[in-house]
Structure formats: structure tokens, C-alpha cells
Design a protein around this nucleic acid. Structure first.
Lengths: 114, 114
DNA sequence: ACAATACATTCCTATATAGGAATATGTCAA
DNA sequence: TTGACATATTCCTATATAGGAATGTATTGT
């Protein structure tokens, strides 16, 4: 079996760095495609294709306005990713505490000269 | 250009559902490969390959113990993903508030017949 | 030394990209 | 109507999978 489609869920869609850039750029403000092209520095067809993927998984909203299309990030669709990572927070907290404790123990055993 | 390698960063590695399962299973507790195989329900070579990807991006720690290898999730490596999604939290909060307000306005305009 | 156990790696194949180039579609302005 | 503008789609190719099957590599117990 091959890799899952980029359009299969938010996890796969946001694996692409340029798509993450686009989502960040479109967070909170509507922009038309031409603006995204300039901001991201990819050519127009590539941007349109990335937007197509993001549309497919519901990561962006589109609104037509004359010959323009106004895109905006649908933050709600990023939540599942946030929530999955959230479950690990307590573990990296523990890890940081352990690292700190080890550093402090080392300090006592072998104080910095001077 | 093709899609970025699964080993290029945590975002790509975590796009695979089975790898997310493995990371969840290995969060906080060391397990040997055989246990993972049983827990996840994939065959051993597949699990080993997923573990290889996770190792490559530093998402798991390994420790050898005789003929066993003990794996554990390195939660710290998931943080970048958490932090990227975190930046969108204020936006989905806004969205939820707007949805709620709209619902309440609708209630006033057109109260539920009871 | 040898068999068994625990993992990892290699080989195979169908599949889905990402970007570049070219082209299609849709909308406005004169 | 026609041309210009904005965006989407199609065609192309190199590339990297994920899983299945088979095989390789350590390590331990006897």
C-alpha cells in the first residue's frame, strides 16, 4: 500500500511546509490567491493546487468575490492535530523536570570551577 | 518534486495513523517490539519499519536489553507540532464564539415553539 | 556449537504526490 | 463582443512510500 493521500486528513495535509505557511498566512484574515502567491513565493498553479488540498480537508474556507476568491483558514479543522499532540504534554513536562533535576545533581557533584 | 520523506520531520512522520498509535502506546512506558506488534496488530516487519521512521526523526528512544529493544516515546519531539497548532487556538476560539452568538441571535429572532 | 528467539533489513509493487509547463474556465471592463 | 485578468485544472515525471514476503543479524539458553 502506498502512503495515504494528502487529502485524507488534516495530519497529512499539514505535513507539507508550504501548506503550513499558507495556513499561517490565512489565519484570521481573508486573502485572495494573488496575495498568497506573492506572500509565499510559489507560482500561481502550485498555490492553487495547495489550496485545493486544503479545501478538500476543510482547512480553508473560500468565498467568491467577482473574479477573485477569498480564502481564510478554518482553524477549527486544525484542532484534531492540536488535541492529539496535547496528550503528550504531560510527558514532555516530566522529561524537562528530569533533565533539570539531573543537571542540578551534576552541579552538586561537580560544581563549576570559579 | 515528490512528496517530502516521512523521515524529514515530525509533521511527516506523524501523518501515518499507525505511527500515531505507536507513539500513543509508547507514551510514558517502555515496551519491546513484540508488545507493540500485539498492541497495534500489524506484523513485526511493518512495526519495525515504522519504528525506524520514528527513530529517524527522534520521536522515540531505544534502549537495548539483551535480545530485546525497549522503545519509548520522546514526547519532546512532538512539541513543534503542538506549538504550530497552538498558534491557531485563538482563531478557533473566535469561531466558536461567533457560532454561539449567531445561534443566540437566531433564538431571539425566531424562538423555538415549544 | 546450535537451535530458538527477537528484531531489522531487503526486495517487490501499486500509488500518490509536488512542481513545472501549458491550457482551460470564469468574470469584469470598455 | 473582445481582451485582460484571476484562478483552476490537466499533463508530465522523478520520487518515496506502506505493506507483504523473505531473509539477515544478534543474543541467549542448553
Amino acid at each position: 500500500m502506498a502512503r495515504a493521500a494528502t487529502t485524507s486528513d488534516a495530519f497529512n495535509a499539514v505535513a507539507e511546509p508550504r501548506r503550513r505557511e499558507i495556513l499561517t498566512y490565512l489565519a484570521g484574515n481573508e486573502r485572495q490567491v494573488g496575495e498568497i502567491v506573492i506572500a509565499i513565493g510559489l507560482d500561481q498553479p502550485s498555490v492553487s493546487k495547495h489550496l485545493g488540498v486544503l479545501r478538500n480537508v476543510g482547512l480553508v474556507h473560500v468565498r467568491r468575490n467577482g473574479r477573485h476568491r477569498l480564502y481564510r483558514t478554518n482553524a477549527e479543522a486544525i484542532r484534531p492535530v492540536h488535541e492529539w499532540t496535547q496528550t503528550f504534554e504531560r510527558y514532555w513536562r516530566h522529561q524537562l523536570i528530569r533533565v533539570k533535576e539531573r543537571a542540578e545533581a551534576e552541579m552538586k557533584r561537580n560544581p563549576p570551577t570559579e
